[in-house]
Amino acid sequence: MAENVKPRVRVPRDATAGEVIIIKTLISHPMESGQRKDGDGNLIPRSIINRFTCEFNGETVIDITLEPAISTNPYFEFQATVPETGAFEFTWYDDDGDVYTDTKEITVS
């Protein structure tokens, strides 16, 4: 079970129409790879975030499939175009069925 999962996202507050912005996301998550063993030599079961998506007003920016080889606290940096005022929707899908979301509004002047 993943505990204390906290998404953090950095998006500029405003932009001009069609501007390219850089988005940085980080989510605190142990990303247990399923390769490690505990003190008694038992395999610790895999528990990772397996998918991350970013959408702007319903249109996809990026959709990432994560494997156990992504580091603890998965970090992503990518670029997006902002055509109009709206909101970025970030979604993380956990192996255990949990879904974590975050939303960031951006104003186009």
Partner: peptide, 9 residues
């Protein structure tokens, strides 16, 4: 990982 890019990337 596999990155799939949408129209707004």
């Amino acid at each position: 990982a596999t990155f799939t890019f949408g129209p707004l990337a």
